[in-house]
Amino acid sequence: MAFLFHGVGGEHNLNVSLEAHQQLLDYLAENKDIIWITTMVDPAQHVKTQQ
């Protein structure tokens, strides 16, 4: 699963509130030992090497 955000806080039609975004960031930080947190480049390269 990948999360990609545009306009956090109201700058985009698919708005995510600052509060909800912070809750997600907090959850990810608390679980960084079991959740891979990276840029979109790393998983894309990983998928490419697996094909």
Rank of each mutant, 00 (worst) to 15 (best):
T38D: 15
N31S: 14
D42K: 14
Y27M: 01
M1C: 07
Q51A: 10
L25S: 01
E30M: 15
H6W: 00
H12Q: 05
F5P: 01
I34K: 14
T38K: 14
V8N: 05
W36R: 05
L24W: 01
P43Y: 02
A20D: 15
I34F: 11
L14T: 04
L25W: 05
D42H: 13
H21C: 05
P43N: 03
V47G: 00
Q45M: 06
L18I: 08
Q23T: 08
D33L: 04
G7V: 02
I34N: 06
D26W: 09
E11D: 13
G7I: 04
Q51C: 11
L24E: 04
A44D: 11
N31T: 08
V8H: 11
M40K: 01
Q51H: 13
A20K: 09
S17R: 03
I34Q: 11
Q22S: 05
I34E: 10
N15M: 07
H6P: 00
Q50F: 01
L24I: 10
G7Q: 05
V16A: 00
M1G: 11
M40H: 11
A20Y: 08
L4C: 06
V8P: 01
E30W: 12
H46L: 12
N15L: 09
I34V: 08
T38E: 15
T39M: 06
W36L: 11
P43M: 03
A44S: 11
Q50H: 02
W36Y: 10
L18P: 04
G9P: 10
M40E: 08
D33Q: 09
L18K: 12
F5M: 02
I34H: 12
K48T: 12
M1H: 02
H21P: 04
A20H: 11
A2L: 02
E30K: 15
E19A: 00
F5R: 09
H46T: 09
F3P: 00
T39S: 15
L14F: 13
H21L: 00
A44Y: 12
Q50M: 01
I37P: 03
L24V: 07
Q51E: 12
T39K: 09
F5Q: 14
M40P: 04
E30A: 15
I35F: 07
G9T: 04
M1P: 04
I35P: 03
T49W: 00
